[in-house]
Design a protein around this nucleic acid. Structure first.
Length: 525
RNA sequence: GGCGCUAUCGUCUAGUGGUUAGGACGGCGGGUUUUCAUCCCGUAAACGGGAGUUCGAUUCUCCCUAGCGCUACCA
């Protein structure tokens, strides 16, 4: 039985790297019809962040990664091996540490932190690898008894076996470490809490984890864990160390260099489908010449395999995320249009002349004309205007579709005469109004917007053709490129980088709203 | 310093003992679009270096180099 787990420590938000690890664990479990569980590793009291667990659970559930066992948001537990929060299992670890001491695989260490630090810096100065010298391992029983009676604080250290430790990693193949080069790890801290190494091994065993899938940073710790499994007389699980996610400069992905929290991408409006799709492909691919890149979670569950996980680290490249997002936006938009059409009893056809950009034709069985006049008219208008456009966020798509859906179902006639625009103007960055490539800098944007404001103010007949006329004249006046006037204006009106055309937006918004938005944009500059 | 992992276009990657080394993102060029964007087409762009094995290595082996990770009473 395959059982995997995602075991984050609640020290902040779930970041992209964590998400990808969780995703791989989840996909591997699903692919092999096994279980996936969530375990909270909160053994470090100092780094614990209030609300981090709740956040983690929420983010995971938003993204659609469901676990079979683990803590729930309401405080209850799902699964019979729980509790799945390590701080609630402390006696368990102490018990197991005692067992190790008895068997001679661990020992109590009474050295003070100051003493250890001194030793370490002395070793570093002598260019020796910093390691504990096992003073306390050689303590006679009587002395240990005395120190325990005197209540001198101590930690429990693992007694690393001085032998070659070999194992097979599912991603990296055969790996080996020399036990002599590995320090005696602290297993139980002086505050009574276990360290990762002990808690992780004990829990993975008790929870019957078959495959440990985790980040590559754990590879050097794996021999410590294997030694622990051996000491307990347990069989160790399979290990798969997945490649690290990297910053632009190839260092381990960190908060320092840009946004890494999944939440921030959610807030920015990225679709979960895009985030999953992107994360999955960072260090993995379906292999064997497969050129399909767009996958749903369900599809990934079917094709995921650990053999195709890459060995080298992958740089987190936001441009590719944007592309995935764009693809998914279209996908979802199209699906919703289909669903909507079905609801209003319309037929949808796809014009395949434009690949990847289906055009929707709305027809009705026997009363085509009537249909077009009523329900279809608005829908057609929406589709013609917006279908080819790129939207920045799911919120906008959903908002638009909900509006369309509600209104069409309620009173189709009312809508076709009065189109209100569903975009609320966000607080867009002023950089949106500029476009380097097009030669639009701040002063250009200002000039364009001011002229547009003046001339549109005078316009009484607020038709698309008239608006176009006015704006084209400005272009002529400056003898510049169309985009130099249209770009800042469109951005100002829509607040979006990609949106319907300027004239359509201006017309749809109406004169008053349009001028208000231009005014706002000018203030922003 | 010690230990370990890794190495194909700028980025994500496919791939093989003999290939025109393939795709995607981004770039560039052109076309469509009444306009910017979208969309379409085209294009440039990579096997880190050195030995060895071999008729032949990007592919197998070794060395070097570089990058990264770990080296805590953090995970």
């Amino acid at each position: 039985m395959v059982r995997t787990r995602f075991a984050p420590s609640p020290t902040g938000y779930l970041h992209i790297g964590g998400l990808r690890t969780a995703l791989y664990c989840y996909l591997f479990a699903r692919k092999n019809k096994g279980n996936f569980l969530l375990r909270i590793e909160d053994t470090d009291q100092e780094r614990f962040v209030e609300g981090a667990v709740e956040n983690l659970i929420k983010t995971l559930s938003w993204i659609g990664i469901e676990y079979d066992e683990g803590p729930l948001l309401d405080g209850s537990e799902k699964g019979k091996f729980g509790p799945y929060t390590q701080s609630k299992r402390t006696e368990l670890y102490t018990k197991h540490a005692d067992e190790l001491i008895e068997k001679g695989h661990a020992y109590r260490c009474f050295c003070t932190k100051e003493h250890l630090e001194e030793m370490r810096s002395a070793q570093e100065n002598a260019k020796l690898p910093p390691m504990y010298d096992r003073t306390c391992a050689k303590l006679p029983k009587s002395e240990i008894e005395e120190k325990l009676k005197a209540k001198i604080p101590f930690v429990v250290r693992q007694k690393m076996p001085y032998e070659l430790i070999k194992f097979k990693d599912l991603v990296r193949g055969n790996v080996q470490f020399d036990g002599k080069t590995i320090d005696d790890q602290v297993l139980i801290k002086s505050d009574g809490f276990p360290t990762y190494h002990l808690a992780n091994v004990v829990d993975d065993h008790l929870m019957k984890i078959s495959h440990v899938i985790r980040g590559e940073e754990w590879l050097p710790s794996t021999p410590k864990h294997i030694a622990l499994y051996n000491a307990f007389g347990w069989e160790h699980p399979e290990f798969a160390h997945v490649p690290l996610l990297l910053n632009e400069d190839k260092s381990k992905l960190s908060k320092r260099q840009g946004d890494v929290s999944v939440e921030s991408y959610i807030e920015k409006g990225y679709l979960k489908e895009a985030i999953i799709n992107f994360a999955a492909f960072l260090g993995w691919n379906p292999g064997s010449g497969e050129e399909k890149e767009i996958f749903t979670l369900e599809e990934l569950e079917k094709v995921f395999s650990i053999e195709h996980v890459h060995k080298a680290g992958a740089i987190f490249n936001i441009e590719k995320l944007d592309w995935f997002n764009w693809k998914w936006q279209k996908e979802i938009f199209n699906k919703k249009i289909f669903a909507l059409a079905k609801k209003i009893d319309a037929k949808v056809e796809i014009d395949l002349s434009r690949k990847d950009q289906p055009k929707f034709l709305f027809t009705s069985e026997d009363k085509e004309e009537k249909f077009k006049e009523e329900k279809g008219k608005y829908l057609l208008e929406i589709c013609e205007k917006h279908l080819d456009k790129k939207y920045l966020s799911d919120k906008n798509i959903l908002k638009m579709l909900v509006t369309v859906e509600e209104k069409i179902l309620r009173d189709p006639k009312e809508i076709s005469s009065q189109i209100d625009f569903y975009f609320t103007l966000p607080n867009y960055p002023k950089e949106l109004l500029t476009n380097e490539k097009m030669g639009v800098d701040f002063s250009w944007a200002k000039k364009s917007l001011e002229n547009a404001q003046q001339d549109l103010e005078k316009l009484d007949d607020w038709k698309v053709s008239e608006i176009k006329n006015v704006l084209t004249k400005i272009v002529e006046k400056f003898s510049c490129k169309n985009g130099q006037v249209f770009w800042p204006l469109r951005a100002a009106l829509s607040g979006l980088e990609f949106s319907p055309g300027v004239f359509e937006i201006a017309h749809t918004l109406g004169k008053k709203e349009s001028l208000t938005r231009i005014e706002k944009a000018l203030k922003n500059l």
